[in-house]
Design a protein around this nucleic acid. Structure first.
Lengths: 135, 135
DNA sequence: TCGGTTGTAACTATAATGATTACACGGTGG
DNA sequence: CCACCGTGTAATCATTATAGTTACAACCGA
């Protein structure tokens, strides 16, 4: 199972999109997500770095740089996920075994399509879709 | 990123499929995967429980119950993965917030399609495909 | 300038994962 | 038939990822 960062990021962005002029503090978002404000600020930092939203230091509130309809879940996913690969592959398989020697390249190839399929689905869903489900 | 169990399981099954009468020990497989024999036996236990292979206690070697072409990566994935969900969702979001109240149901709904897309891809690939890539 | 908030580093706690030790049990070959 | 070797599995340990927390300087607005 993949960590809950995508879920938290979507939650944060849903709040920001819903209350665009609400002076939403990290404290407030944290109380909705049920976590620590620093966790929220950290994640907002990643979203900012990815150009998904803007915020001024010291000032509550943040703004999306795009319309929710134009912000895909893939954009969000890539902004907050450190590792790019979907499945981990064990390292240092035995190069003296014909299978161990080729397994990594083979799995990389096989996993490629699977990851692409997943990313296509993420790309096909936007924050707007989430907001519509929410209300 | 998802753990490396699928990768290890595919590695194990590739060896068993390639050397069907080789008296392959967990020790031998472990040396190819580069891990501890117990890790291999544990995983073989899960694959047995899922009906993917048979083995007798005390006797080296195991046999696939299906042709590699009929064994999908989804079968393998389901055999060895404990959690069914692809993405984790943070728990206890605030029910007093209109967004916190609905976020879990919404995310579950949204993630459903994404997971299905991924599982379809896994279902479309078989151990035979892996073996063909390997050699 | 004061009060409140952000941004970020540093540290801690917890849980998942994988590695390891240990040992009873099962089958096989001499 | 019994000694040997491997399996099956529980229990424990180590490492790492993840999330939570503390702390504090920098920042802005009233």
């Amino acid at each position: 199972m993949i960590n809950s960062r995508l879920s938290v990021a979507i939650h944060i962005l849903s709040i920001i999109a819903t209350y665009p002029h609400g002076d939403i503090t990290s404290e407030l978002i944290a109380s909705s997500v049920n976590t620590n404000p620093v966790v929220i600020r950290r994640m907002i930092g990643l979203l900012k770095k990815a150009g998904i939203l803007t915020a001024k230091a010291g000032v509550p509130g943040a703004s999306l740089t795009k319309e929710p309809a134009d912000l895909s879940l893939l954009d969000i996913y890539k902004a907050i996920q450190s590792k790019d690969e979907l499945f981990a592959i064990h390292d240092n398989p035995n190069p003296n075994c014909p299978i161990g020697k080729e397994i990594q390249a083979t799995l990389n190839k096989i996993y490629e399509n699977i990851q692409t399929a997943m990313e296509n689905e993420l790309a096909n869903k936007s924050l707007k879709d989430v907001l519509e489900h929410l209300f």
